[in-house]
Design a protein around this nucleic acid. Structure first.
Length: 845
RNA sequence: GGAUCUGUAGCUCAGUUGGUUAGAGCGCUUGAUUCACAUUCAAGAGGUCACAGGUUCGAGUCCUGUCAGAUCCACCA
C-alpha cells in the first residue's frame, strides 16, 4: 500500500468493480423488508451541482440497507425538464440564426430529444463518479414511451373521474415563452412604478396599468364606503380616449377604501383579482392584450403596441385630454415575473386543462396527519398541510413544445354528433374516430410537474418492480421543491395506486459556500463538486456534505472542511496500512481479547456500532458520520493502535479494521472498498458484506482501561505544563497499575518507573492510582500558579455540587440515579481537591 | 399582511424526549517526532448558548416578549 491514499488511483477501478459485480441490482434476503428510493431525476441535459451531490444521503441509506440484507433498490432517472431545456435549446438554435418556428412542433420535439439523448451520459457519468450505487440498468427517462403511456393512463382516469376539465380562466402568461405557468413558477419582485390617478366620470381612481382601461367592464368600490353609496348599482358615463363609455358601479369587499381614492377599475381579462370580482358580479371579459403581449383590436388606435409602449402613450394622451388627475411617481409594489426566463408575467384569460385538486388534496393531507408519511424534519409537515389546504386548481397544460403532448384530439369535422374532443394516446385512434383530416391534435404539452409527480409509481411500473418496491421507503430531495413536487407526488400517487408513494420524506437544505452565503453565478461563489472531488477525493466531498449538515437546514461547504475529511480517508488508509503490515501472513481466526486495551476497544466498537446504526435508522446521518470519524481517529488510532504497539493482538486489530471499514463504508465507499480489496485473505466485496453486529461489551475492564487513559492524560498534561521530557515516575504498587506499566511508559513518555512506599515530587491527580513525577524543586515551584488555578476550578465545582446536594427539593424530585451520580462526583472532586491541597502544602513547606 | 427557520468558541456548524464543569472541525498558541500517517502526535487558550422575563429541584433545550438575519406563502388597484 502506498504511503498516502490517492483517490484518483482507485475510484474509477472500484466503481467498475461494483458495477460489473452486479452489486447495484436488488438482491438481499427476500424475507427482510424491501428498501427502495427513487432518485429525483436530474435534468438530462444538465451537469452536476452541489444539489445532486446531496444525493449522497440517499447512497448512504442504500448502502446501509444493502449491507443489512434488505432487498434494496435505488432507481435512477433523468428528467426532460420542459421549459428549462426548451430555453437552452432555443438559445442553441439562435446561434445558427434559427428559431423553433422553423420547425413543426413534432420536428422540434424530435430535435430536442436527439440533443437530450446525446447529452444524457454526461450527467449519468458524473453521478457515477460520486460513487452512487444506483441500479443503472433500470434507468428511466421522463419521456420514455412506457412512462408516457402511464402518464396518459393517469390523465385518462382523472378525466373519466371528472377531475380534469378544460376551462377559460385567468393564467400567468409569459409572453416570451408564449405559455401559461402555475403560480408556483412565478416570483414577485418589488419595484417602483408611477401610479396614475385617472378621471372616470365622477370618480378619480388609481392604477399602474392605464393601458388596460379599454378592457374595463366595471368600476368597483367598497360596499360600505359612504362616499360612493349612491353610485352602487348605477351606471356612470365617462369621457375616454376612445370616446364616451358607460360602466356599471359595483360594491365589492375586495376594494380597500383606504387605498388611493377607494375606487378601482375592474379589468377581468388582465388582473387576477379583477377576474375574481368579475366572477362574483358576472362581468364581461374584454381581452385587450394578446398572447403576444401586444394590444388587441379592442384597444382601437393603440392596437399592436407593446404593453410598455401603450402604457406610456395612454398616459400621455390622458394628460393631453385632461383626464389625468395626477401621477404619483414613486409607487412601490410587487410585480410577477416568470421564474425561469425573467419576463414580466401578463395575466391573461386563456383556455387550459385543469385538474380539480380538492378531491386529491384531502387524502394527501390525511396521509401526513395520520402518520402514514413522515417528513424529516417534522416541522415541514405543517408547511405541507398549510399549502395543500390553500391549493387552487392546477393548470397542467403548457404551450411549450418540449414535453409530453396532451393526448387530446378535437373535432374538426363539423359533425356535431361526434364529441367535441376525445382522449386518444395515438393519432390513428383519432383518425379512426373522426375520419381522415377531420380532427386536430392538441398542441399543448403537460406541465413537467404533472408527469414528474407520477415518477415513483411510473418508474416502478415501467421496470416491473411495482409489487416488490412500492410504496418506496424514502423520498430524499431538496426542501425547496416540497410544494412543487413532493405534495403532488403524494396526491397523484394516492390517486393512482391507492397507496402512499413513500413512507418518509427526507428534505435536505441548501448547500452554501464556506462563509454560509448562498451560491450564485453573479457572486462567483459557485462550488463545482467535481473540482472538489478531483482535488480531495470523492469520499472527502461526501463526508463534508454529510457531517455537520442536518435535514432542512442549510449547510456551508468550504475547502477546509473537505480537506479535513480527505485527511480522515488518509487516516483510515494508514490504520489499514499499519494493521496489514502487522498482520503479515495472518489467516482469519476468532479474535480473543487479552489485555484491558483489547476489551476496551471491543467495548467501544460495540457501543458505537449500536449508536451509529441507531443514528442511521433515525436519519441522523451527521451524527452517524461524526461517530465513525471519532471512533476511527480518537479511539482506534490514538489509543488502541498506540496500545497495541506494546501489547499486540493481531486478530483484534484485524477485527477492528474490518468493522471500521464496514461502519464507514456507506459514508466513504471508495477508500473503504479500496482497503478491503487490499486485504490478502479472500472475501466478498465490502459493498455487499454484512453490516456488523454489535459484539460483547466488557464494562468492567473498559472502566479499568479508562482509568489508565485518565492517568496517561494527567501525566501528559503535567509534562506539557512543566516542559518535562521523559521524567521518572514513582508509584505505590497496585496490580491494575502494574499490568499497564509498559503502556503508561510508552503513551505518557515516561523515562524510568519505580515502585515506592511513599513518593515525593509532583503527585499525579488520580482517583485510582497513587503516583508521583520526580521533579526538581525549582521546576516544581514554577508550577505553583497552575496548580492553584486547577485547585480553584475543582473547589468551585465542589461547591456547586455541595449546593445541589444541600437542596432538599433536588434530593426529593430528581431521579435517584442522578442524585447518586452527583454524590459520586462530589466524592471524586473532593478527593482531587485534597490531593491538590496536599501538593500545594508540599510546595509551601 | 400570514407563516417558518436561524442567532451556541475567531470561522463553519452539531447539540434525540430538559439532567456530567456546553461539543466538533478549521483557525490560533505551546511542545513533540527515525520505526502506519506532517494529510502526523501531545497539550492549551477561547463561550454570561442574541436579549429580557417566566415555568422547573434543574433551561442552550419548554413558554412569553424584544432585537437581528434568512426563507416561504399571499399580495396592495
Amino acid at each position: 500500500m502506498e504511503k498516502a491514499y490517492d483517490p484518483a488511483k482507485h475510484e474509477a477501478r472500484i466503481y467498475k468493480l461494483w458495477e460489473d459485480s452486479g452489486a447495484f441490482k436488488p438482491a438481499g434476503n427476500p424475507k427482510k423488508a424491501a428498501f427502495s428510493i427513487i432518485m429525483p431525476p436530474p435534468n438530462a441535459n444538465g451537469s452536476l451541482h452541489t444539489g445532486h451531490a446531496m444525493y449522497t444521503v440517499e447512497d448512504i441509506m442504500i448502502r446501509y440497507h444493502r449491507m443489512q440484507g434488505n432487498p434494496t433498490l435505488w432507481l435512477p432517472g433523468t428528467d426532460h425538464a420542459g421549459i428549462e431545456t426548451q430555453v437552452v435549446f432555443e438559445r442553441e438554435l439562435a446561434k445558427d440564426g434559427k428559431s423553433r418556428f422553423d420547425f413543426t412542433p413534432s420536428e422540434f420535439y424530435d430535435a430536442v430529444l436527439a440533443y437530450t439523448k446525446n447529452n444524457q451520459h454526461n450527467i449519468i457519468n458524473q453521478l457515477k463518479s460520486l460513487g452512487f450505487s444506483a441500479d443503472w440498468s433500470r434507468l428511466k427517462f421522463t419521456l420514455d414511451p412506457d412512462i408516457i403511456e402511464i402518464v396518459y393512463d393517469t390523465f385518462r382516469r382523472l378525466h373519466d373521474d371528472g377531475l380534469v376539465y378544460r376551462g377559460n380562466r385567468i393564467v400567468n402568461w409569459c409572453p416570451r415563452c408564449n405559455a401559461a405557468f402555475a403560480d408556483i413558477e412565478i416570483k414577485h419582485r418589488e419595484q417602483i412604478d408611477p401610479l396614475y390617478y385617472i378621471k372616470y366620470g365622477p370618480f378619480v381612481l388609481a392604477t399602474v396599468r392605464p393601458e388596460t382601461k379599454f378592457g374595463d367592464t366595471a368600476i368597483a368600490v367598497h360596499p360600505k364606503d359612504e362616499r360612493y353609496q349612491k353610485y352602487i348599482g348605477k351606471e356612470i358615463e365617462a369621457e375616454g380616449l376612445l370616446g364616451k363609455f358607460k360602466l356599471k358601479v359595483i360594491g365589492d369587499e375586495h376594494v380597500n377604501p383606504d387605498f388611493g381614492t377607494g375606487v378601482i377599475k375592474v379589468t377581468p381579462a388582465h388582473d387576477p383579482n379583477d377576474w375574481e370580482i368579475g366572477l362574483r358580479h358576472n362581468l364581461e371579459v374584454k381581452q385587450v392584450i394578446g398572447t403576444d403581449g401586444r394590444l388587441t383590436k379592442l384597444a382601437g388606435k393603440y392596437a399592436g403596441m407593446s404593453v410598455a409602449d401603450a402604457r406610456d402613450q395612454v398616459a400621455k394622451d390622458l394628460e393631453a385630454a385632461g383626464l389625468m388627475d395626477h401621477i404619483e411617481m414613486d409607487y412601490r409594489h410587487s410585480v410577477a415575473y416568470h421564474d425561469r426566463c425573467g419576463t414580466q408575467i401578463e395575466p391573461l384569460v386563456t383556455e387550459q386543462w385543469w385538474v380539480k385538486v380538492a378531491p386529491l388534496v384531502k387524502p394527501a393531507i390525511a396521509a401526513i396527519k395520520n402518520g402514514d408519511i413522515t417528513i424529516v424534519p417534522r416541522r415541514f409537515e405543517k408547511v405541507y398541510v398549510d399549502w395543500l389546504e390553500n391549493l387552487r386548481d392546477w393548470n397542467i397544460s403548457r404551450q411549450i413544445w418540449w414535453g409530453i403532448p396532451i393526448p387530446v384530439y378535437y373535432n374538426a369535422s363539423g359533425d356535431t354528433s361526434k364529441k367535441p374532443y376525445m382522449l386518444f394516446s395515438h393519432e390513428n385512434e383519432a383518425r379512426e374516430y373522426y375520419g381522415d383530416g377531420n380532427y386536430e391534435a392538441e398542441t399543448d404539452t403537460f406541465d413537467t410537474w404533472f408527469s414528474s409527480s407520477q415518477w415513483p409509481f411510473a418508474t416502478l411500473m415501467a421496470t416491473d418492480d411495482f409489487d416488490r418496491f412500492y410504496p418506496t421507503s424514502v423520498m430524499e430531495t431538496g426542501r425547496d421543491i416540497l410544494y412543487l413536487w413532493v405534495t403532488r407526488m403524494v396526491m397523484l400517487g394516492l390517486y393512482r395506486t391507492g397507496e402512499i408513494p413513500f413512507k418518509t420524506v427526507y428534505l435536505h437544505g441548501l448547500v452554501n459556500d464556506a462563509q454560509g452565503k448562498k451560491m450564485s453565478k453573479s457572486k462567483g461563489n459557485v462550488i463545482n463538486p467535481l473540482d472538489k472531488t478531483a482535488t480531495y477525493g470523492t469520499d472527502a466531498l461526501r463526508l463534508a456534505l454529510t457531517i455537520g449538515i442536518t435535514p432542512g437546514n442549510d449547510g456551508a461547504l468550504g475547502d477546509n472542511k473537505i480537506a479535513g475529511y480527505r485527511n480522515f480517508c488518509n487516516k483510515l488508509w494508514n490504520v489499514a496500512r499499519y494493521t496489514l503490515e502487522k498482520a503479515g501472513e495472518y489467516s482469519p481466526t476468532t479474535p480473543e481479547p487479552q489485555s484491558l486495551a483489547d476489551k476496551w476497544i471491543l467495548t467501544r466498537f460495540s457501543r458505537e456500532n449500536v449508536a451509529i446504526t441507531k443514528a442511521i435508522e433515525a436519519y441522523r446521518f451527521s451524527e452517524a458520520g461524526e461517530r465513525v470519524y471519532s471512533l476511527l481517529w480518537n479511539d482506534l488510532a490514538d489509543w488502541y493502535i498506540e496500545s497495541s504497539k506494546i501489547q499486540p493482538n493481531i486478530p483484534i486489530l484485524i477485527y477492528c479494521l474490518e468493522t471500521m471499514l464496514k461502519l464507514a463504508h456507506p459514508f466513504a465507499p471508495f477508500v473503504t472498498e479500496a482497503i478491503w480489496q487490499n486485504m490478502p485473505w479472500p472475501k466478498q466485496n465490502l459493498i455487499v458484506s454484512d453490516w456488523p453486529e454489535a459484539t460483547k461489551a466488557y464494562p468492567k475492564e473498559s472502566r479499568q482501561f479508562g482509568d489508565i487513559m485518565a492517568l496517561v492524560s494527567q501525566i501528559r498534561l503535567l509534562l506539557a505544563d512543566l516542559q518535562l521530557t521523559r521524567p521518572t515516575l514513582h508509584y505505590v504498587a497496585n496490580p491494575d497499575l502494574e499490568t499497564a506499566l509498559p503502556l503508561i511508559q510508552q503513551l505518557a513518555r515516561i523515562g524510568k518507573m519505580s515502585p515506592v512506599e511513599q513518593g515525593s515530587g509532583l503527585r499525579v491527580p488520580s482517583n485510582r492510582f497513587t503516583c508521583w513525577l520526580v521533579v526538581d524543586p525549582e521546576t516544581l515551584a514554577t508550577y505553583r500558579t497552575a496548580l492553584q488555578h486547577r485547585r480553584d476550578g475543582a473547589g468551585e465545582y465542589s461547591k456547586k455540587l455541595a449546593g445541589q446536594l444541600a437542596n432538599q427539593s433536588y434530593l426529593k424530585k430528581a431521579p435517584g440515579d442522578l442524585v447518586r451520580q452527583t454524590k459520586d462526583r462530589m466524592a471524586e472532586t473532593d478527593l482531587l481537591l485534597s490531593q491538590l491541597d496536599e501538593q500545594i502544602r508540599a510546595l509551601e513547606s
